[in-house]
Nucleic acid binder design. Structure first.
Lengths: 218, 218
DNA sequence: AAATAAATTTAGCCTTACCTAAAAAATTGA
DNA sequence: TCAATTTTTTAGGTAAGGCTAAATTTATTT
């Protein structure tokens, strides 16, 4: 079994690898883990010792197969718990993260799989992120950032990139939620802001917003 | 907030205080915590420092009011999660303890209270133990040990004292479960074994068993 | 009331996962 | 290219929560 800290490192490496499709630097990992690079070096050595990552001095880390499947399992638990909190316990999508961060470390295969069944094998969490199944398989997103669409393009809002409380509450306030049909009306060259239409309502949204919303077109 | 270890100590002290209705000795606590007396002394000092227990050297510990309410909160969470596991996730009553030991440490008031609501404010856990409400109040048992009944006495089986996997599985094997009507037919002076009737079936049970089953009479 | 036994505490050490400061390697750019 | 900067690692230290062994206090017997 892995310690709490080891699990958090594995998850962080997984997220960074996925986001940047490359090995993970010590500094980037320190940033993600809110800790110092020297602490990262220590832990990375430990993970390398256990063959959960491949590590060569000064060259960053990559998850090994074993490390990846451990990370995916944690992500699976995290996202299942998020679904549980929203669907069964009346949490809103901006409240789930902190609690799921704790619940993801509960060790019980039966618990995870029964929870999955209880929730009817959900495919995505409340932020639109895919939930790995019991074998660690999950669909890779086929969607693009709203910012990449052109005037006239239409699509369904399927996920958020940033899932901070602030961003999620901004979306709530503007009645933007997953599953909604979005149409791009106009794009402003100057500040890259956009006019979009949701439910017949026109919104003006900044570039920061449009680069954090995933849209599925066609 | 309290550390994992602090929480476990508070809970252990609470259980020992309740069981023996007295202050808790260092050795008893070490036994309960599966650790060494010297480690207990260290932690007890730390808890005393934080005013969660009253402690005088060589004289054992007692929970302070603050310590007690922290302990009760942990017990509340533990028992609520047990109900959840049995009622929603198909766990049997001998499987829940280990997982609930982990879940009881999740920190989120909203989670606890919403879980309570979701489960419809259960009063007892799967082993018959009372569940504290959000204010820390819970009913004190008005029941007695099966071993204390006399031939001819009848009652309902309402709880188990020992909730080890072995004992619970023994009960399952013998179709003894909570809510069942039990009648004492005979008591053997020699080994204190008993003949009892459950659902028209006669069982012969040893003293060890009868001192671990709670019965509500009248 | 000693003497012995049992319980408890103290002292000093270990591991995990952090930290700071300094050294070393890699990268950048003049 | 080679000096300056940035990144990473190393060295040595800290706090939490364990441990063993030794010292001390309390309890039990004779």
């Amino acid at each position: 079994m892995f310690s709490l800290s080891e699990e958090n490192y594995l998850k962080a490496i997984f997220h960074l690898e996925t986001a940047y499709k490359s090995g993970v630097s010590t500094n980037a990992l320190a940033e993600e883990m809110q800790t110092k690079p020297s602490s990262v070096t220590d832990m990375v050595k430990k993970l390398a010792e256990k063959e959960l990552v491949n590590y060569k001095k000064y060259q960053g880390v990559k998850l090994s197969e074993e490390g990846k499947s451990a990370a995916v399992e944690i992500v699976r638990k995290h996202r299942l718990w998020e679904v549980f909190l929203v669907e069964k316990l009346n949490f809103s999508w901006d409240e789930v993260h902190e609690v799921a961060e704790q619940l993801e470390h509960i060790k019980s295969e039966k618990l995870t799989n029964e929870l999955d069944k209880f929730l009817n094998y959900p495919k995505r969490d409340p932020h639109g992120d895919p939930i790995p199944d019991a074998n660690g398989n999950f669909s890779v997103a086929n969607h693009q950032l709203l910012a990449e669409l052109k005037p006239g393009d239409k699509g369904i809002c399927v996920g958020v990139k940033d899932s901070s409380v602030e961003f999620l509450q901004y979306l709530d306030k503007n009645r933007i939620s997953l599953g909604r049909q979005i149409e791009v009306l106009e794009k402003e060259d100057f500040d890259k802001s956009m006019q979009i239409k949701i439910d017949e309502v026109t919104h003006n949204i900044s570039h920061v917003i449009s680069t954090n919303l995933y849209i599925k077109t066609n």
